[in-house]
Amino acid sequence: MKNIAVAAATTALIILTGASLPDKGPFPQEKPRIDGETEAPAETAPIPEPRPSTANGTENPPTPPNEKPLDTAKPEEKPEKFGPPAPGTLEAQNLTIEPESDADHAKCVRELQALGAVFKDIPRIDDGHGCGIDKPINLVEALPGIAVKPQATLRCPAALALARWMKESVIPAAAVAAKEHGQITTINQASSYICRLRNGAFAGKISEHARGNAIDIASFSFEKGEAIAVKPRREDSTLTGAFQRTVSASGCLYFSTVLDPESDAAHEKHFHLDVLQRKGGYRYCH
Rank of each mutant, 00 (worst) to 15 (best):
L95S: 11
E76Y: 07
D104W: 07
C131S: 13
R234A: 13
G132W: 02
D102H: 03
K2T: 13
K24L: 11
S221F: 03
P136A: 09
E39Q: 14
A159S: 08
A227I: 00
P85T: 05
F220W: 06
Q113K: 15
E100D: 05
F202Y: 14
T257G: 02
A103S: 07
H267K: 07
E235G: 01
I184G: 05
P61L: 08
A114N: 11
H105P: 05
G280L: 10
N94T: 00
A173K: 05
T257S: 05
P50M: 01
S192D: 15
A45S: 08
K205G: 06
E49A: 14
P75C: 09
Q29R: 13
D260K: 00
S191K: 12
E59F: 15
E168S: 11
I187E: 08
L154F: 07
S169C: 09
P61R: 02
A117M: 10
G200T: 00
I122C: 01
G83Q: 05
L21M: 14
I34N: 13
S20D: 10
P32V: 14
T54A: 15
D134T: 04
I4T: 12
D216Q: 05
R51Q: 14
I137H: 03
D121A: 15
R245K: 10
A175W: 09
G83N: 00
L115K: 01
T89A: 05
P41C: 11
K179E: 13
T58G: 11
L143A: 09
P232R: 05
T17H: 08
A114C: 13
W165Q: 10
K24I: 14
E100T: 13
Q189V: 08
E100Q: 15
E168G: 00
H272M: 05
I137K: 10
A174Q: 07
D274G: 06
I34H: 14
L160I: 09
R164C: 06
G200K: 01
N3R: 11
E262H: 13
E37V: 15
V230S: 01
H286A: 13
A86T: 09
A152E: 07
W165P: 07
I215V: 15
H181M: 01
K78F: 01
S263L: 02
D126V: 07
F220N: 03
F243I: 06
A73W: 10
A242P: 02
W165L: 10
Q189H: 04
V170G: 06
A173R: 06
E91G: 13
K31M: 09
G130S: 02
E80I: 01
H272D: 06
K135F: 08
L259N: 00
E223R: 03
P261M: 03
M166Y: 04
D71A: 10
L273V: 01
R110P: 06
E76I: 14
A152G: 10
T185N: 12
K135Q: 15
L276V: 14
I228L: 02
I133S: 07
S256L: 02
P87A: 13
D126T: 08
L90K: 08
H272K: 10
N3Y: 09
E98D: 09
P144E: 12
T54W: 12
M1F: 12
K269E: 00
G130M: 02
G212H: 01
S219M: 04
